[in-house]
Simulated assay, not measured.
Amino acid sequence: MGDVILRVLIVIGFVSVCEAAPAPRDKPVVFETSSLPELAGSFDQFFRQELAKANVPGGAYAIVQGDRIISIHGYGVREQGGTEPVDEHTVFRLASVSKTFAAGLSAKLVEEHKFSLDDRLVSYVPEFRFKTDHKADRLQLGHLLSHSAGVMPNAYDNMLEANVPLPRIITSFKKVDPLCDPGECYGYQNVLYAMIGPVMEQTTLRTYENLISDMIFKPLEMSNASVGYQAFLHSENRAAPHVRTRKGWLKTKVKPAYYEVLPAAGVNASVSDMAQWLIAQMGHRPEVMSAGVLDSLTEKKIRTKKELRRRDWRNYLKDAYYGLGWRIYQFGKEQLIYHGGWVAGFRADVAYSKSRDVGIVILLNAESNVINRLSTRFWAEIMKSAI
């Protein structure tokens, strides 16, 4: 078994900032007045049908174009057997979609010269070491946010799930060596990704919770959004997690494990919150997310060939990369910026097209693969002429 047991999970997740001036952002394609609303109407029907077919307790979605919400709805119930409905303000766990926030916050702090993504991790976390001592010295902050640290995928997630304290998990890396040099291969991480948190806190003398609230949630008026386990439990309008059993979907307890890694999996939000996040990602809130920040997030850093085999997505994907906290998909002939999240009892998908200036977010309170059909159906319709 070696020195340590590493469990590889399939996570659906979801660039260092260039010194040169960022390239101009793509000019959005303008839809005909009736086309997107018509598509939104047919998607709404499809969404309800698919949730009913899969018996998913509840879900919500929002479609945005430019700086406007075109359609936003919640369906079903927050808890199986309950009566309280899911609405646009119902809070879900975002799981790995949280990585998009950590990357965006990091890029903003880089823009403010708080740190550089070329900085070495050991400059901020000196106790971090690999088995071969000098190999840790090569690891840069940009490698954390692009999952290109070279470490075996999902390293020590099993310890997270066993509620092992994060400091102890960090020191466990001294028992292993990377599979490749940093920047050379892709390996999805939660523990390593979360190491950007201590960097932010040391360079700003503020907590991660305060930073994300003051720099992202509040200016974007994400009024239901929060970070952490206790914050989720304190949300009155929150969805309960559900797992599949032989008898159907069963409500389960909210597990605190992945809240240990806030930048990787610690954000809670409603679909109305996520609509504002999408609008900002698409360039319509430059006072919060500048063009330079957005371009740095979606620069291709490492190829992720495994994504090409994803259920439902494989029918459309031609290539796949990871940037900073976002996946960059070649969906037919067009580029799609995407991330997914999956944690006990919840699924989340968020994606947008720069060229078409359209985005969608889907949140479910059950671990259902129906989310893949929902997302791919939407984008197949949007990009029909380019597939």
Rank of each mutant, 00 (worst) to 15 (best):
L262C: 01
Q49E: 15
Y321L: 07
E184C: 08
M195N: 00
R327Q: 12
S353C: 15
Q281H: 11
F47D: 09
S146F: 04
P182D: 10
I170E: 01
L278A: 11
Y188S: 09
V370W: 00
D177G: 06
T171E: 09
Q281E: 12
G341M: 08
S226L: 08
E381S: 10
L250C: 06
L166E: 03
L39C: 03
I371F: 05
D157T: 13
A231C: 05
R356G: 00
F14D: 11
F46L: 12
E209I: 14
M152Y: 11
G74E: 04
L233C: 03
V125G: 00
G292V: 07
D67Y: 01
L117M: 14
N224M: 10
S375F: 02
E19W: 06
F14L: 13
G332F: 09
R303D: 04
K305G: 13
N365Q: 05
D137M: 03
K354M: 09
G41E: 11
R120L: 00
M215C: 06
A52H: 06
W277N: 05
A95Q: 04
A231F: 04
N190R: 04
T203S: 08
E381H: 02
T204R: 08
Y322S: 14
R347F: 10
K53N: 09
K135E: 02
L220E: 02
Y352E: 03
D349R: 15
E299L: 15
A231E: 14
G104L: 09
G13C: 05
M200T: 06
V267E: 05
Y75T: 14
T100S: 12
T132V: 13
E19F: 10
W277Y: 12
V267S: 04
I216Q: 06
S375K: 04
G248D: 07
G345Q: 04
I196W: 01
R303F: 03
F31Y: 10
Y329W: 11
L211I: 12
V29G: 02
C18W: 01
G340Y: 09
V64F: 02
S35L: 14
P167F: 01
Y259H: 03
A351D: 07
V293I: 13
L363T: 10
L317P: 01
R129Q: 03
G187K: 07
A225T: 10
K99W: 05
R138Q: 12
W342R: 08
V11I: 15
W379R: 03
L94P: 00
G81W: 02
G248C: 08
